[in-house]
């Protein structure tokens, strides 16, 4: 019997999820930043700014940004680590990496390396990075536990993992508004702006299937991290999990 996993609210064969996710991001890559600004009312920039501030990254550090897409985090990490450091911008999707490359050049940022990789099999040696980040990417990974183990493996002892991801809000009011917005407004905006209603329907569904804050914290600790804590942002619509490898 074939193993299955979720793709939004649908059950699909585990082996098929990766290519389905790739299809979504191939489709939205060129409008990704614009859509993020529109759908989050610009808040994604604040969430990412908080993530960078929480990273404790300093000059000379090595940073890997997984599912880094259009390079928002990589740009800021590059400024922090300076010429003595190293930033690798990675994504499983070539179209997203291309957008990232263009975005970095447009921002005058050079010296960032680009690697197309699968978070479940990261092609770097053990204990390589001071910081690994993944922003709005983990929910698209098929085997999240395996990906977290890989992130733990490539971090140096004392290294920091940052997971910025949509999460669960406890506020009943926010929940109702967010459900209406996610399922009734977001896909329509996706259809109008990116000409792809279906991908934004997947986005809304995949957020609901993602583990809540406490479950993800347990997963991070189970992957081998010595410490993990999370901070809710915008009432828990988004959460930043921070793991420390000891």
């Amino acid at each position: 019997m074939n193993k299955t996993t979720h793709f939004g609210f649908k059950d699909v064969a585990t082996d098929d999820k990766q290519s389905l996710v790739r299809g979504v991001f191939d489709s939205v890559a060129s409008k990704y930043d614009l859509m993020n600004d529109v759908l989050s009312f610009g808040a994604h920039r604040l969430w990412k700014r908080y993530t960078i501030a929480s990273s404790n990254v300093k000059a000379g550090d090595k940073v890997l940004d997984i599912a880094g897409g259009t390079g928002d985090l990589a740009i800021e990490f590059r400024k922090k680590v300076g010429d003595a450091g190293q930033v690798v911008l990675s994504d499983i999707n070539a179209a997203m990496l291309d957008e990232g490359r263009k975005n970095l050049i447009n921002n005058g940022i050079f010296g960032v390396e680009f690697v197309q990789l699968n978070a479940q099999q990261i092609p770097f040696a053990d204990n390589t990075f001071d910081c690994v980040s993944i922003a709005f990417g983990l929910r698209n990974v098929t085997d999240k536990d395996q990906a977290l183990k890989e992130m733990h493996r490539i971090l140096k002892p004392g290294g920091c993992l940052l997971i910025l991801e949509f999460s669960k809000t406890d506020s009943e009011f926010l929940k109702k508004f967010y459900d209406f917005y996610s399922f009734s407004v977001m896909p329509k905006l996706g259809g109008m702006i990116a000409d792809d209603e279906e991908s934004y329907q997947y986005l809304a569904e995949s957020i609901r299937k993602h583990p809540d804050q406490e479950t993800l914290k347990s997963m991070v600790l189970d992957a081998g991290f010595g410490f993990c804590e999370y901070h809710n942002l915008s009432g828990g619509i988004v959460a930043l999990h921070k793991g420390i490898k000891v």
Partner: peptide, 18 residues
């Protein structure tokens, strides 16, 4: 909080389970 001193920096974490 816990002050986790590692990798030449201090992480301040509310995770005090360890």
């Amino acid at each position: 909080v816990n002050f986790v001193c590692t990798n030449d920096r201090i992480f301040v974490t509310t995770d005090t389970s360890a």
